[in-house]
Write a protein that binds this DNA or RNA. Structure first.
Lengths: 257, 257
DNA sequence: CGAGGTGTTGAGATTTGTCAACCTACGTGG
DNA sequence: CCACGTAGGTTGACAAATCTCAACACCTCG
């Protein structure tokens, strides 16, 4: 194989000048090695001996307040973003302005891959709570992926995951009833939170009913009605944005048939 | 940069033995350089000087008859497939057997990326007419992508395209009426055919109304009804599977509002 | 030529959307 | 710290889109 290539300090500097100001955060805060979300992130499967090099991909962090946009449709694509903390939605705007939420993303998940194709973002990403993201310039990822096969494999895996997720949402939107959609939605959230060490049964919905409805292809009133129906059936407790899943197997049964 | 690495003859032989018999087709038929679909395919943006190396990715071709499966859900992922000729649908099976068509694919498009994540295909791909595909083992793609940046870039672009397509289908399924879905579907087919040098106004639907309905999240009867409505409105001529688009701007207008 | 898969059309059922009213929670500014 | 305004959430009545079931027509392929 070829010799190792570090991202040169010049390259970093040039990039930083081109794109935006370097963050004020001291460099050491950005290390992947100490990040408890590394497992689900881009460096997840990179062996420790390569990690020091791969960490160079993360050239800055950025703080996004609730309601702010990480990127907009039409923005130039430069970075893939890793969520260190917080919660985002991505959405696609119709030609006439209708908005379709295309995903919800939490800590350890990646954002921005949609721009990789033609150099411009097609989606936009909006923070649903105050969030922290790692900026990973695509040019650095590209270069590093050539040098570190485990990173390359991981990158492909992450992209493929997003493809598979899309197909799953097609299944949901194309052939499930409102009840099934909500059940699948809650189960999915629950699993992802559990996987991150949070409670899988008690959590707060960061998004509005409108957002959920858009994502699931339902009117916001339908979302509300189905949730109260679940409540009456003893499947969940709903208190506005506060959700407690009482009977997860009951929810899972809804998908089984 | 690192030195060029050719796929060694040994590696090829081992791979072929592992996976399946080498094709009977003489080697020279498989070259990308002569393929008129190269533009839309994986080697599309690879400069001529690298093409000879990249062509080695395609280690065989395979002929699939109508109705046969290129791969099944659960099959081990080894290859990405490039369609040389023919037409495919991919679909995802629900836990209870419902089928959701996740895409239709024609010459020059790639199949099988959904398995890249966990090593098993989640979708299945079924030929809707007799088809020819190029087999590109992922292990070879991976290796070559490290050596040929233009191929790497292209691979990422192709994956990102599929992600973006998914988001577009979400928009369609999540927030369009039956009419809008059909209009979008026909326009999309038309554009892709046109781009390949076929007529964008007269073509044959290779899939059934049921397939279309599954893809668009509609009952097959609704598909039929909307098509006849389009016919009555002078937008298209429909004769079973034979479609003539009479008024494409009329169809496009349906999406604009 | 026949059979089975595919496509069309109609009538009625059902789900979900729309509109409207009202309620709740939260944040801001006095 | 409270009050008020506003965004978000719930619920009801009704409308509309789409689905389901059923009958029939068509086309292709063996």
């Amino acid at each position: 194989m070829s010799a190792a290539v570090q991202v040169s300090p010049q390259a970093r500097t040039v990039f930083v000048r081109q794109v935006e100001r370097p963050t004020d955060a001291p460099r050491h805060e950005v290390t992947c090695a100490k990040c408890n979300l590394r497992r689900t992130c881009l460096s997840g499967s990179v062996p420790d001996e390569d990690l020091e090099r791969v960490e160079n991909i993360v050239y800055a962090r950025r703080r996004i307040k609730r309601g702010e946009r990480l990127f907009n449709a039409g923005d130039e694509f430069r970075c893939i973003y890793a969520i260190r903390s917080g919660f985002f939605k991505t959405s696609l705007a119709d030609s006439d302005g209708r908005e379709q939420v295309t995903g919800f993303f939490m800590g350890g998940e990646l954002l921005g891959m949609d721009g990789l194709d033609n150099g411009r973002h097609k989606d936009r990403a909006i923070a649903l709570e105050d969030s922290d993201v790692c900026l990973m310039p695509y040019s650095l990822i590209e270069q590093m992926a050539r040098e570190v096969p485990s990173l390359q494999r991981r990158l492909h895996s992450v992209l493929a995951c997003e493809i598979a997720r899309g197909h799953g949402v097609m299944l949901l939107l194309g052939s499930m009833s409102a009840q099934e959609r909500l059940a699948a939605f809650l189960i999915n959230l629950s699993k992802r939170l559990l996987h991150r060490g949070y409670s899988g049964s008690d959590f707060v919905l960061r998004m509005t009913r409108n957002d959920i409805g858009s994502y699931l292809g339902l009117a916001l009133e339908t979302v509300s009605r189905v949730l109260t129906a679940f409540h009456k059936d003893g499947l969940v407790d709903v208190q506005q944005k506060q959700i407690s899943i009482v009977d997860i197997t009951g929810l899972e049964r809804m998908l089984g048939r």
